[in-house]
């Protein structure tokens, strides 16, 4: 997708692009975090037909909705593409010794070699979670590594290992 970038001095940056189906869209990124989501008039490409204003929190949530699903999709592709590498979502259930504890406590990467690349929760996806991210009951950890390593992470989280 081609994205055209225009500076708006004093305000921020504007991005414009066209979808495959021919809809002309734009996003104005304000310096202070506000985002304007713009749909252009099909009859007059100079003019905004609709302008949806999102504050910093709202635009972050929308971004997760749009981008978060893609990460899981991409991981599934990766799964097919690379031999011996699997990705799986591992559930943190109520019996897990690591529920309500920071991710770093599991020492999963050191012990197994597998990486936890995202935490999927009701509120959205946390990609690249820091070791300090606290695991909650019901979280699904997107884990990537060899078959054995991912199994091992699963066992660690269930408290078997």
């Amino acid at each position: 997708m081609d994205v055209e970038r225009t500076e708006l001095p004093g305000i921020g940056v504007r991005f414009e692009f066209e979808t495959k189906r021919g809809v002309h869209l734009g996003i104005v990124a304000h310096r202070e975090g506000r985002r304007d989501f713009i749909m252009y008039d099909p009859d007059d490409p100079d003019s905004a037909l609709e302008c949806v204003v999102l504050d910093a929190d709202e635009s972050a949530s929308v971004g997760e909705l749009l981008g978060g699903a893609r990460i899981v999709e991409k991981l599934n592709q990766l799964h097919h593409e690379i031999e011996n590498l699997v990705s799986r979502q591992i559930l943190v259930d109520a019996t897990s010794p690591y529920a309500e504890r920071p991710l770093g406590d599991t020492r999963a990467r050191t012990r197994t070699g597998a990486s936890i690349v995202a935490i999927v929760r009701d509120q959205g996806v946390e990609t690249g979670p820091a070791p300090s991210a606290v695991l909650r009951v019901g979280d699904r950890l997107v884990t990537i590594g060899t078959e054995e390593a991912v199994d091992k992470v699963d066992r660690i989280l269930r408290g078997i290992e």
């Binding site: 225009t6 500076e7 708006l8 001095p9 004093g10 305000i11 504007r14 414009e16 734009g26 104005v28 304007d36 713009i38 252009y40 490409p45 100079d46 003019s47 905004a48 302008c51 204003v53």
Partner: peptide, 23 residues
């Protein structure tokens, strides 16, 4: 700048031109 933002005109083609005059 306030009028441009209130009227949702930041996406319009002429807006960068208007802003560069102000600059």
């Amino acid at each position: 700048a306030k009028v441009l933002s209130d009227l949702g005109w930041l996406g319009n083609r002429e807006t960068p031109t208007v802003l560069s005059l102000l600059v």
